[in-house]
Design a protein around this nucleic acid. Structure first.
Lengths: 130, 130
DNA sequence: TCAAATAGGTCTCTATCTGAGACCTGTCAA
DNA sequence: TTGACAGGTCTCAGATAGAGACCTATTTGA
């Protein structure tokens, strides 16, 4: 059922003569899916956090990418950025309503990923073996 | 609930002293996130299809990326590749059980994306406006 | 009093990845 | 014999990601 629905959307879009590369769903997926945004959202699902705290939670993200990913998420309204006039000033990031609403579907995906991690690892071994 | 669960996984993983960058969940997400794999899976959700048919359905994918994405998906056991000895030989790709099982969570994400496409577009406009 | 740390970034450089498109092998139809 | 289709591979230029030095300002510690 759901598959058919997902599918039809692509078809409907195409039949509208739209440029598939500008499909909004694709656009959204592109960066919901982007390498770091999922991890950042997961981290913020615990509660608001500051720049360096997020950085520490995700030790292998560079500051550059952290900044960029946070800006992306902010621009799309998934997280909010607030500056506090402490000295030195601190900046807090938190999920918006919309960001929060993404955790459900994202969680389902993570569940799937965890459930299938070992079959996938196995498939890779088999593939590598020939 | 689910958020706490999703979160804890990251924590648990970290506390095991594992290299976060090798976390299997992350690995799986990485290519759910990959630019084309989601679209290919959606296309194959209709039924098995051949190389060029997939290419036609996704007009702005280059052959190079199509080949590469298909190999990735095959290697991880999400799709299967079968060569038929027609002349010229034809190659059919289809979802495996595991690939099929991913459509559910993926569909949820797509539903979300479609539902929030316009709020996101609005957020972007607002952000751009200053 | 000098050094280091914290906070939140920016800048530059390099390595990797992507996309466009030419090319290849083989068979068939016109 | 020329072109079309099938399913790719190859090369090259341009875009993108990651590492890490650097920046401003304030506070802490030695």
């Amino acid at each position: 059922m759901r598959d058919a629905v997902a599918l039809d959307r692509l078809e409907v879009w195409k039949q509208k003569g739209q440029d598939l590369s500008k499909c909004p769903v694709r656009h959204v997926l592109d960066h919901v899916a982007a390498k770091w945004t999922t991890l950042i959202l997961m981290e913020l699902s615990k509660g608001p956090a500051r720049f360096n705290a997020i950085g520490r939670a995700l030790p292998d993200i560079s500051k550059r990418m952290l900044t960029q990913s946070l800006r992306d998420l902010e621009r799309d309204g998934l997280i909010a950025r607030e500056v506090f006039p402490t000295k030195p000033p601190s900046v807090e990031y938190r999920l918006t309503e919309m960001g929060l609403s993404l955790l459900g579907p994202l969680g389902a995906l993570i569940d799937w990923a965890e459930l299938h991690a070992s079959p996938i690892a196995e498939a890779r071994r088999a593939y590598a073996a020939g």
